[in-house]
């Protein structure tokens, strides 16, 4: 007997259950199909403007820095400003995400832009989040051809752009958006829920930022006029 059959057999014997019991099968099929919502905290259930404000407050509590800009066209100069303010070299790495590439980077002549996955030598990475979660100040990033996962972890500074219109009240709504985009039961290879910069409290419970991932997380929330 294979280990698989042995384990499943032991489980059924311990539970006194029958694999072909239609009631058990139906319970499982329906839960997988319906994916019922559980308890959703009231905290994030707010009108859009307050929701975005809550997202910014919660992200700052997680020790991320947050800037709000009006329109995607303002992002490149905001990125350049962040680099200057933190005495960083004028160079960033980013994926080929269309929302990022359609921004007016050419206006930042001094800024050097590398595309594709990070090899660990980049000081700063720029990503675009699929959504934000107001409840906890969490960013939701999905992997794909245009969104290398390495950029989320290897650079010392991670700058993440998110549209204010994509900020959801709760985690379940952000997960529902992924399901909508990829199909029921399907997922991209990696979904990164990021809540602040990397940290460790492993030595004497003292919290230090920058353990293995980025030491700093900078979030640019883009308000698009006319979009909500």
């Amino acid at each position: 007997m294979s280990a698989r059959d042995a384990i499943l057999g032991k489980i059924r014997r311990s539970l006194g259950a029958d694999a072909s019991d239609p009631a058990r099968r139906a319970a499982v099929t329906s839960r997988l199909e319906l994916a019922p919502l559980g308890v959703i905290p009231a905290r994030g259930q707010l009108p859009q403007a307050e929701r975005v404000a809550l997202f910014c407050t919660m992200a700052k509590k997680l020790l991320a820095s947050v800037e709000r800009v009006s329109g995607y066209d303002a992002v490149p100069e905001t990125v350049a400003g962040y680099l200057r303010n933190n005495n960083l070299p004028a160079a960033v790495r980013m994926g080929a995400d269309e929302r990022l590439s359609s921004m007016p980077w050419v206006e930042q002549r001094a800024l050097e832009i590398s595309r594709g996955p990070s090899d660990g030598d980049d000081a700063v990475g720029v990503s675009h989040a699929g959504s934000g979660v107001a409840e906890t100040g969490t960013l939701v990033l999905t992997s794909g051809g245009d969104n290398p996962t390495t950029i989320n972890f290897l650079p010392d500074h991670h700058i993440v752009v998110v549209s204010a219109a994509d900020i959801e009240g709760d985690l379940e709504s952000a997960l529902a958006k992924i399901r909508e985009r990829y199909g029921k039961g399907e997922m991209p290879r990696t979904v990164n829920l990021i809540s602040g910069p990397s940290r460790s409290g492993d030595i004497e419970q003292k919290l230090i930022l920058g353990a293995h991932g980025p030491r700093a997380l900078h979030i640019i929330v883009v308000d698009e006029p006319g979009v909500s």
Binding site: E135, M187, R189, L193, I194, S195, G196, S198, R199
Partner: peptide, 10 residues
């Protein structure tokens, strides 16, 4: 409230 990295791999 959330750990810093919650990673879903498929």
């Amino acid at each position: 409230e959330m750990s810093v990295y919650t990673t879903m791999s498929t």
